[in-house]
Nucleic acid binder design. Structure first.
Length: 466
DNA sequence: AGCACA
């Protein structure tokens, strides 16, 4: 037993129970790793397919000495460690345990989340995606969207087995070049599992398809043109108008609840739906009106204004690409005011489950690929690779804050800012002291209750142009 | 052939 007197490599690590193995054969199976390593001790965890080429892995032994014995053995062996005849390089990992070996994206399901790397969304059509993935079985639905992680698609198969075969075959591969535009040289697919089981496709469009429902209406606006900004008469880019506003809330010193937003935006017309979510570390909300005109007026009137005096909760408004939000009727982050049928409401009373699929269907979102929405959030319900939910789709509908439907949002007031130390003069948009009073549900102009002259939204009446 | 995950 000669102690290894190898030259000190630059990357020599201090011993660890975790070994880092590289130069593995493509998609080396866990069993192959185990076969190689188990003679040296008890393996308590592995992580396979690591690295850009998915040819690295980690193996964690129960005991440090076991890891040392393996490294020592191969350091002095004349036969290198091999898997499928390929030399495997082994060293101590710079970490001491394998964490989170199974990410949610590794939990098999029938829906794949595919990130298409190295392309612009226009380079890969939904037909191409459909073609590539149909090789493994019937593709039920596809929804594509853009977000921070890049161009992504959710692809729904019949079952997890089919999805798995597609994932195993395509993960890390490139879409065949002949299916891509000339300027695209490669286009790698990163594939994980989505937590979803059934996508909610609302329209056939250039961004989404439901192959199980050929009669699904074609979205007249979604088929084209959305990627190309509308150019106004002045030649400047102009975002298409919409009945849904996207509000970014800046300097959010106080809680902005659904009710607060409802109050503010109701000044300009009926608010149908509201959804609040986190995006890029900030808070955003989608507010749906029945029509574009109302939304336009609200946008004009509220842009740049603050919900509270003192520059707090400043609103920045743009048009969303959504036209109809698919939100849960009652949650702390969303509201659907169009549901007024008492019998419907009654079904969501405490103790009863909310609408069965509601949590699976934050979809109006991903399907409509809005960049103003965290598709992953809505879609995923899981936070793997850049998929942190904007709002939690798994969040079960809470019982209404009162068992009488009509009073639901009257009683849920008690906003958190009640207890927040609030600088003098920064009154919430309802009247001072409103925190302890039921919020008025009827369409009472919010400015009516607010002292005039403030910079806050509620201090001034909305401006109605034509 | 050279370190994941959050």
């Amino acid at each position: 037993m000669s102690t290894s007197s190898q030259p000190q490599f630059r990357y020599t690590q201090t011993p660890s129970k975790v070994l880092h193995l590289r130069n593995l054969p493509w998609e080396c199976a866990e069993e192959e790793l185990v076969e190689l390593c188990k003679p040296f001790g008890k393996i308590v965890n592995t992580k396979c397919n690591v690295g850009a080429n998915r040819n690295q892995a980690f193996v964690e032994f129960a005991d440090l000495n076991q890891a040392i014995s393996m490294v020592s053995y191969y350091a002095s062996s004349s036969e290198p460690a091999q898997i499928r005849g390929k030399t495997v390089y082994i060293q101590y990992s710079n970490r001491h345990e394998i964490v989170n070996n199974k990410s949610p994206g590794d939990t098999p399901g029938n829906v794949l989340l595919v990130t298409i790397e190295g392309v612009e969304p226009n380079d890969v059509t939904i037909e191409t995606i459909h073609l590539v993935f149909s090789a493994f079985g019937f593709v039920h639905k596809i929804a594509t969207f853009e977000k921070a992680a890049g161009f992504q698609a959710l692809i729904q198969f019949t079952d997890a087995e089919t999805a798995s075969s597609a994932r195993n075959a395509l993960d890390g591969r490139s879409i065949p070049r002949y299916l891509l535009p000339d300027h695209v040289t490669s286009c790698y697919l990163r594939i994980s599992y989505s937590a979803h089981t059934d996508l909610n496709i609302k329209f056939q469009s250039h961004r989404s398809r439901d192959y199980t429902n050929p009669y699904l209406p074609v979205n007249p606006t979604a088929m084209e043109g959305l990627l190309q900004p509308v150019v106004g008469p002045d030649g400047k880019k102009q975002e298409p108008q919409s009945n849904v506003l996207l509000a970014s809330i800046e300097n959010m010193q106080y809680a902005v609840t659904v009710d607060v937003l409802h109050k503010v935006f109701s000044a300009f017309g009926t608010v149908q739906k509201i959804a609040i979510f986190e995006k890029n570390g900030g808070t955003q909300a989608l507010i749906q009106y029945p029509d574009v005109t109302t939304a336009a007026v609200a946008k004009e009137s509220l842009e740049g204004h603050c919900i509270y005096d003192g520059g707090y909760c400043k609103l920045h408004l743009s048009y969303s690409r959504h036209t109809d939000l698919n939100v849960k009727a009652y949650s702390d982050k969303s509201r659907d005011y169009t549901i007024s049928d008492p019998s419907l409401l009654a079904t969501q009373v405490p103790g009863l489950p909310a609408a069965p699929n509601a949590w699976q269907n934050p979809q109006g979102v991903p399907v409509h690929h809005g960049t103003d929405y965290s598709a992953s959030a809505a879609i995923q319900g899981q936070p793997p690779a850049g998929q942190v939910p904007a709002w939690d789709p798994n969040f079960q509908a809470r019982p209404p804050y009162g068992s009488v439907p009509g009073q639901t949002y009257q009683s849920l007031t008690a906003p958190t800012y009640v207890n927040a130390a609030r600088p003098a003069g920064s009154s919430p948009l309802s009247q001072p002291g409103a925190s302890s009073m039921p919020m008025q549900q009827q369409q009472q102009p919010p400015w009516a209750n607010v002292r005039q002259g403030g910079a806050a939204v509620l201090g001034r009446p909305p401006y109605y142009s034509r």
